[in-house]
Amino acid sequence: MKLVIDAGNTNIVFAVHDGTAWRGIWRIATDAQRTSDEYGVWLGFLLERNGIANGDLRMAIIGTVVPAALYHLRRLCRDWFGIEPLVASAALDWGFTIDVDNPNEVGADRLLNALAAHQTYGGPLIVVDFGTATTFDVVDQSGAYIGGAIAPGINLSVEALHQAAARLPRIGIGRPQRVIGTSTIPAMRSGIYWGYVGLVEGLITRIEAEYGRPMKTIATGGLAPLIAEGSSRIERTDPDLTLEGLRLLSLRNPAPPLRNREPDND
């Protein structure tokens, strides 16, 4: 079985794949100070509840955009499961060209989404990931990653609006029935929701125009289904796209040998 770890700015997702299907997918809030032992106790309990023993895990792969969390996640794999994890980076064999100015600057999550989306849906395509940031990643017909766009995430924008304007409350995100709000909170909800739908549709339209042909659009991330409800430009949502990208990447690259378990400076 394979342990797959997707460490984002907001949550870390742990998943186990048995070669045929996902046996479990679990989330925990990202905290760079959380130790490998804390992860180990928490994850060990969940594995046991799902009938998975620590020794059943034969390989691990980590994708992270939070460098500070990597050390403890590596220690988790080494000390609790006796596995040296493969870490997603531009230096690995992705099976496609990373056609940008500096491939090392591209977040691992963006490359993983590109890998899984092209493998699953073909190309050319745009992957929209609604995370802490809202990212737009462009994959050509051959599967090459050719760049994209990054915008502030929806929750980030809601929090910034509340913090910067003393009289505007913190609001939840939902799809309002009306665009014209008749009081402050409905007006804010309309601006956030329909504003982001407009941002998504506008960028998709401009990316297609620059690319020169129609493209499929796949959305992922926690808010993808909600935004897709209001947009005709999102063809499909795929909540496990990044996890699938990690699984596919692990199939293309050998597991590294287990390193010395003594403390290191990773």
Results as ranks from 00 to 15, higher is better:
2 K>N: 09
2 K>D: 06
3 L>T: 07
4 V>A: 07
5 I>G: 05
7 A>V: 11
7 A>T: 11
8 G>A: 09
11 N>W: 03
11 N>Y: 10
16 V>I: 13
19 G>T: 12
22 W>T: 00
25 I>P: 00
35 T>R: 05
35 T>L: 06
36 S>Q: 13
40 G>R: 13
41 V>L: 11
46 L>H: 15
50 N>G: 03
54 N>E: 12
54 N>Q: 09
57 L>R: 07
57 L>T: 09
61 I>Y: 14
71 Y>F: 11
72 H>S: 15
73 L>S: 11
76 L>Y: 14
78 R>F: 00
79 D>I: 07
84 E>A: 15
91 A>N: 13
92 L>E: 03
95 G>T: 12
96 F>H: 12
96 F>R: 08
96 F>T: 07
98 I>P: 14
98 I>D: 11
99 D>Y: 02
100 V>P: 06
107 G>E: 11
111 L>Y: 08
112 L>T: 09
115 L>G: 03
116 A>W: 10
119 Q>V: 02
120 T>F: 03
121 Y>I: 05
121 Y>T: 03
122 G>A: 13
124 P>H: 02
130 F>E: 02
130 F>S: 02
130 F>Q: 01
131 G>Y: 10
132 T>V: 10
133 A>R: 02
137 D>R: 03
139 V>L: 09
140 D>L: 11
143 G>Y: 09
144 A>E: 03
145 Y>D: 03
149 A>Y: 05
149 A>C: 09
150 I>E: 06
153 G>R: 09
156 L>H: 02
157 S>V: 11
157 S>Y: 05
165 A>K: 02
168 L>S: 03
171 I>M: 08
171 I>A: 08
172 G>N: 14
174 G>P: 00
175 R>E: 12
176 P>C: 09
180 I>D: 03
180 I>Q: 05
183 S>H: 11
184 T>Q: 07
185 I>C: 01
185 I>A: 02
187 A>N: 08
189 R>V: 14
191 G>W: 05
192 I>H: 01
192 I>E: 01
195 G>H: 07
195 G>Y: 05
197 V>W: 06
199 L>P: 00
203 L>C: 01
205 T>Y: 04
206 R>H: 06
207 I>R: 00
207 I>G: 01
208 E>D: 06
209 A>H: 07
210 E>G: 04
211 Y>F: 15
212 G>C: 14
212 G>D: 12
215 M>I: 00
216 K>F: 01
216 K>E: 03
217 T>V: 15
218 I>C: 04
221 G>H: 05
221 G>Q: 11
224 A>I: 06
226 L>M: 15
228 A>C: 07
234 I>R: 00
235 E>M: 14
239 P>L: 08
241 L>H: 00
243 L>F: 01
246 L>V: 15
248 L>M: 13
250 S>T: 10
252 R>V: 15
252 R>Q: 15
254 P>G: 10
255 A>T: 14
259 R>E: 15
261 R>P: 09
263 P>K: 06
264 D>T: 15
266 D>N: 08
266 D>Y: 14
